[in-house]
Amino acid sequence: MSTVLFDTPGPRTRARHRLYTILTGVGLVALLAWFVWYLYEHGEFAYELWEPFVTPEYVEALWQGLLDTLAMAVLAILFAVVAGFLLGVGKLSEHRLLRWPSWLVVEFFRAVPLLLLIIFLRFGPLSLSPYWSVVVGLMLYNGAVLAEITRAGVLAVPRGQVEAAYALGMRKTQVMLAIQLPQAVKVMIPAIISQCIVALKDTSLGFYVLAPGLTTVGRSIWIEFGNQLQTALVLSAIYIVCNLILTAVAMWAQRRLVGERKPIVHPVDPGMGQGGPAPGSS
């Protein structure tokens, strides 16, 4: 292993590293064993606490919750892609009347916490249903992020393509629709899939407004059985599996569509959910 931090180790260093490996390995295993034993002592492995996750009715409820969560995330991302395209192209427009409002909308929804937005949509003058307040909130936030991704994608199209199109006598709109956007979409698809992961994690905020979804189902289970820890573990496992599948799909799309070029997702959203970059840094 070659790294910038240290030289390739010699025999004595390797022996020392082997010792550290054994010591830390033993330490970690001991810590894990102690934790499991601690949980066992507290009776956290009792069958009654895990029972709902092997009972068909509850498994079905969780499955329904997962489907709701996925449906909300997919719906939000579909709307967000459309909004993102419009805002992203708007930000690139030559007309100030288009550029400035697009910029304002994007910056605003990127800087406001999603939960604040959802609460406003649910309990504010609009009084949307719990389901739609989550979907619309996700749509506005992800639309703002995808606008930046669209902008980056369009700007990533080689300059020569645009110049060639103008040289052929195409109009501005034609260049955007026929030359820039189709090539941008190809680069953007991995970023859009990554944004699905963020949206999927953020649907958990439906918990606060009692929107259908995994976390709300989870709450009703732990209220009934008093098994908060077990429910939280099962929910985390479900989220982690879904997100790892999406990550694999995004990586496959990246290899397939973009190749060795850098993905454009990183400067825009660290993937933390309801996050965003430093406005003005892009």
Binding site: Y38, L39, H42, E44, I197, K201, D202, S204, L205, F207, T215, G218, W222, G226, Q228, L229, T231, A232, L235, S236, Y239, I240, N243, L244, T247, G271, M272, G273
Partner: peptide, 19 residues
């Protein structure tokens, strides 16, 4: 990274007091 932050809060605020 793949767990929602809300669940972290559930672990700390709701589940941890149980043990």
């Amino acid at each position: 990274r793949n767990t929602p932050l809300l669940l972290m809060f559930v672990f700390v605020f709701v589940a941890a007091p149980n043990i």
